[in-house]
Design a protein around this nucleic acid. Structure first.
Length: 264
DNA sequence: ATCGGTACCTGCACGC
DNA sequence: TGCGTGCAGGTACCGA
């Protein structure tokens, strides 16, 4: 579900919780709770106010007043919701002095993790794609020798790009997903950089893509799915040239592309 | 050190 | 209606 634009939208929609105090916390699922006893974690965060909420790639980091960080990753089907009802996939319930926050995740690929220090997993991520300068982007592309699609999905390369926006950026740049990163010439890297920035910026403005179940914390769907040009459009005509969109696996992920518009 | 394949979990759409 | 199959926005871990 959630890539950078969706996570950004969710982070913005829970921003009203900044300054609110956590009255109680309940963690119901050990699998999504990384490294920690549910009750001890609940006891640790109860009574503390939230001082900041910030997105890093696909992670949301909630800072507590007086120290401590709650890191949230939504995996494929994770949702943060500012209202109920709770269901069989509700794995965490945070009750505030005003309001509630639920964590819901049917596939349980997401996670919640508390740490006293800034989370190491977040610190290890690559740069933000909307902040990195082109020269640094180009240098990083050249320093890897892999399929360009795989590189875009690598969170240590840039953080936050997932399967939808990798495919959409490659289409806009006219680059085949199997193209080798180390062989991309500067002009094509520039097109890829511009396409990545544009597609992410437009998707944030649209509130993200709602394919099946993504909604923000207020339950609102995004509408960038209506602007997808190749993602999950296998067999449909290319919006540019009419050639049928094809699907190929790159590192076990579906990759959608136009065989005429996108070159290796 | 880097890469690609596999595993993790649930739900849905599809064909028979 | 039910069952098997394949697919789905994610990352971690393994061995080559």
């Amino acid at each position: 579900m959630p890539e950078l634009p969706e996570v950004e939208t969710v982070a913005r929609s829970i921003a009203p919780l900044v300054g609110r105090r956590i009255i109680s916390a309940e963690f119901r699922c050990v699998r999504v709770l990384r490294g920690g006893d549910p009750d001890r974690m609940a006891a640790r965060i109860q009574g503390h106010r939230i001082s900041a909420i910030k997105r890093y790639g696909k992670f949301i980091v909630v800072s507590l007043e007086g120290g401590g960080y709650l890191m949230i990753h939504l995996g494929m089907t994770g949702r943060l919701l500012l209202a109920g009802p709770t269901g069989k996939h509700t794995h965490a319930v945070l009750t505030f002095d005003r309001g509630v926050l639920l964590y819901d995740d049917s596939r349980q690929f997401g996670c919640l993790e508390f740490s006293e220090e800034f989370p190491a997993r977040v610190a290890r991520l690559g740069p933000e794609p909307l902040e990195i300068p082109f020269a640094e982007f180009a240098a990083r592309v050249k320093s890897h020798k892999t399929r360009i699609k795989a590189l875009l999905l690598n969170q240590a390369f840039v953080r936050g790009v997932g399967n939808i926006y990798a495919d959409e950026a490659l289409f806009r740049a006219g680059i085949h997903p199997l193209a080798l990163s180390s062989r991309l010439r500067s002009e094509r890297m520039r097109r890829l950089y511009d396409a990545m920035v544009a597609v992410l910026t437009e998707a944030i403005a649209a509130g993200g893509s709602s394919i099946s179940d993504y909604v923000d914390a207020e339950g609102r769907k995004g509408f960038f799915q209506f602007s997808h040009r190749v993602y999950q459009r296998t067999g449909e005509p290319c919006v540019t040239c009419g050639t049928l969109i094809r699907r190929v696996l790159v590192t076990q992920r579906s990759s959608h592309f136009c065989p005429r518009c996108q070159h290796r």
